[in-house]
Amino acid sequence: MNEVYYISATIALISTLMVITRLNAIHALLYFIVSLFSVAIIFFILGAPFAAALEVIIYAGAIMVLFVFVIMMLNLGPEAIEQERQLFRPEVWIGPGVLSFVLFLEFIYVIRNYGRHLSGVAVIGPKQVGIVLFGPYLLGVELASLLLLVGLVGAYHLGRRRRSSGLRKGEKQ
């Protein structure tokens, strides 16, 4: 298991490096998703399957998708057209491809070995997490939900398109 851990760690590092060095936002996003997957594998190894699942579902599945949507919505003009042309180039594919492939292999290995975990590490399953979550950390849950509500309202308000090109009272162009 230790080897899996180190491989995942390496992939996480490399892909994160790639995230911050890309020119194209979509590329960076995709690399980040790879990074998220590798971190999920690490979680799994550490005996936190619930956290791993959450990482994939929420982080990679919701937040990054949101990112992608917004960037697509931005409709970055000529750059986007260029990007189209480059999308099908093999050089661009290599990096994410290799990383994803290795990740994929890991997935297979981990899943096949479900139940076997890192030596000396206890598995803390969802049941335990749930009990503690709605026990001592109840207040935190409520606050988190409040935060999400606030985020929702804020995002709605800020995301509104105004008729008058965004000018507010007293603001100068």
Binding site: L54, A144, G154, A155
Partner: peptide, 20 residues
Amino acid sequence: QIIFIFILAMAAAEVSVGLA
């Protein structure tokens, strides 16, 4: 893991507001 859940919730809220 609990803290991780909270961080996740916060990240979600922050991302939505930030993107807006």
